[in-house]
Design a protein around this nucleic acid. Sequence first.
DNA 1: ATTAAATGGTTAAATGCTTTACTATTTTTG
DNA 2: CAAAAATAGTAAAGCATTTAACCATTTAAT
Lengths: 149, 149
Amino acid sequence: MAKAKHTTIIEFTRKIASVNIAYRQFIQSKFKEHDVDLTFEMLQVLACLWNQDGINQQEIANLTVKDKASMTYLIDNLTKRDLVYRQEDENDRRNKLVHLTSKGKTTKAEVQPFIDEMYAAAGKGLDIIELERCMSLLQKLEQNLKEHI
Amino acid sequence: MAKAKHTTIIEFTRKIASVNIAYRQFIQSKFKEHDVDLTFEMLQVLACLWNQDGINQQEIANLTVKDKASMTYLIDNLTKRDLVYRQEDENDRRNKLVHLTSKGKTTKAEVQPFIDEMYAAAGKGLDIIELERCMSLLQKLEQNLKEHI
DNA sequence: ATTAAATGGTTAAATGCTTTACTATTTTTG
DNA sequence: CAAAAATAGTAAAGCATTTAACCATTTAAT
């Protein structure tokens, strides 16, 4: 690979990591400011359920790009906080369906504004066409990495 | 914000997270395949030192986009494995300069090929101009998030 | 010059991630 | 149908991250 391109890829990789961290810090900072006692990961899980309640742990893991073992741990913690509960799936007893408690449901009203704010802030001044072009490049890059493992 | 754009940003955000994970899994998979007993995070630190030995912990933290507390922990772990050692900076005694041991240096030859392979795989078929355009969009997005915290 | 502020590092606690091994259940295959 | 493979979830151990409080040292302000 040409030196210039190699250097560009290295910078690009670092930028992806730092953007990822910026998202996380945005939410953590808003939550701290407003005394919301939730981690970024818990929020990711809750957001899936606000969109569709009663999906199973593996489905949540896929949506949040996490491991099923991490998901067990996260659902445990959310259960301790009385935000969700597990229910066995009668149609396929391997599955545990995850449901929001009433507290889990009301939490949405409390935190959704911060999520909307995050997306609004992130996209400020960005062109949707550019975003889509960039996303398709990211898609190719991800596919490249997965193909060469 | 228009609905289409909001949806695009949400997808975009998820794609950034999944690309980040793809990088990590690429390295973890190569390391496992070749019995290299290093985590992704340890590699990030070592790669900084292979590039420039003897920088301080905060500099490594900045380069790897990590917290200084995480850095203390990582340097502790790398020290236990006899890959690096700390040295007090005589010019500014707040700093600890981190140096590679001889084992830390020889590890580079073992591992650098996988890193090069990762960047080569990632960039395959991608245009450098596109990469730079995408990177500048990511830069704006990151700046947006930081400004609205 | 002295005080206040900033910087670099450490520690501890709580949370999260990853790997491996394991159980239970369902689906595929021969 | 029975054996094998795949899928969903759990558990434990080791590693990583975040926050907050805390030192030590250096720099800035007056």
